[in-house]
């Protein structure tokens, strides 16, 4: 009699933990996709946006003791501005881009952000209070933090906002047009350089939000960017690069697999799971699980 209940609570626990971490990967992956769709660039500084969001939030909400919503908005704006600066000063001026050069440029930006974060926030990890209570709730024997509910809720809001933006606003439609065919979009009078800037802004903003909502749980420090970034990229590839809805599903899937790996194998190897998935997908089916025809269908929402 006891066994099924255990299994149920275990599964629920994995799902909760998976949703918690997976949402962050999903958001990072959406950030990757946005810039990828607009420019064909993989932004190696994506993880640093997440870190920057988390650290800035800590400062605003703890040191300056602003209320959470105010700090949330200010942090997002701050990182968005960082994203815009990155595009204006490092991507936009490159006249003859090669893939190698662009990769190294985004790596350089990530090193700069990482270095700046180390100088400004120091080397230790930073704590932040949860958005609401930090007492866990129990559901069928599994525990869940209220912060997890916040994370899921905010992820859903962003997905809804994303769908609305890209389907019902003119700017969003222009961005989609640029993603599908840049030359044709330009001929139709869309300012494609502006769209690139916008994609960096949005991507940085989403990254910042991911950092803000996860910091109460993982305690942010300046070194986390690389791993968060590469796991986010894993989610992006698994979902089919450029396909943001696929990325959300893939991100959560990776989160759940990680939680299971931590539970069944060893928490030391937990971080390797996302990477192994990334490599496996790249080797076997680089178009992702929602690749080819499926991707086209999902792209239209």
């Amino acid at each position: 009699m006891d066994q099924p209940a255990h299994i149920l609570s275990d599964i629920l626990q994995f799902i909760f933990m998976g949703l918690q971490r997976g949402s962050i990967y999903a958001l990072a992956a959406m950030g990757f996709n946005m810039i990828y769709n607009a420019t064909g660039i993989i932004n190696f500084a994506q993880g640093e946006f997440v870190v920057l969001g988390g650290l800035m939030m800590v400062t605003l909400s703890t040191a300056l003791s602003l209320s959470i919503p105010v700090a949330f908005v200010l942090t997002t704006l701050f990182v968005t501005v960082v994203g815009i600066c990155m595009e204006r000063f490092t991507i936009n001026p490159v006249k003859h881009p090669t893939v190698l050069r662009l990769i190294i440029i985004t790596i350089a930006v990530s090193i700069i952000i990482k270095g700046a974060a180390m100088c400004l926030w120091g080397k230790n990890s930073h704590f932040m209070r949860h958005f609401s209570s930090s007492e866990t709730w129990e559901i069928y024997g599994a525990t869940i933090l209220p912060q997890t509910i916040w994370i899921i809720g905010i992820l859903l809001c962003i997905v809804a906002g994303y769908i609305f933006f890209f389907n019902y606003t003119m700017t969003g439609k222009c961005m989609r047009a640029c993603a599908i065919n840049r030359d044709a979009a330009r001929l139709a009078g869309i300012n494609d350089r502006k769209m690139v800037m916008l994609s960096f802004a949005l991507s940085a903003g989403i990254g910042a939000i991911a950092g803000i909502i996860i910091t109460p749980i993982i305690q942010m420090d300046y070194t986390r960017g690389a791993l968060l970034g590469i796991k986010g990229f894993g989610a992006a590839v698994l979902g089919g690069l450029g396909n943001s809805m696929g990325a959300v599903i893939a991100g959560i899937l990776i989160g759940i697999l990680e939680a299971m790996a931590a539970g069944y194998v060893s928490s030391h190897y937990m971080d390797a799971i996302a990477l192994i998935i990334l490599l496996a997908v790249l080797f076997v089916k680089p178009s992702g699980i929602f690749g080819s025809a499926e991707a086209m269908r999902l792209k239209e929402f």
């Binding site: 660039i41 993989i42 190696f44 893939v99 190698l100 990769i103 690389a226 791993l227 590469i230 990229f233 894993g234 590839v237 060893s266 030391h268 190897y269 971080d271 390797a272 990477l275 192994i276 990334l278 490599l279 790249l282 080797f283 680089p286």
Partner: peptide, 22 residues
């Protein structure tokens, strides 16, 4: 190619590092 290759090798390096720690 390109970005995929960069990320795949980065992923490989991370795995080796994780193993060396774990």
């Amino acid at each position: 190619k390109g970005h995929y290759l960069a990320m795949a090798t980065l992923g490989f390096a991370s795995i080796v590092h994780i193993v060396s720690v774990a």
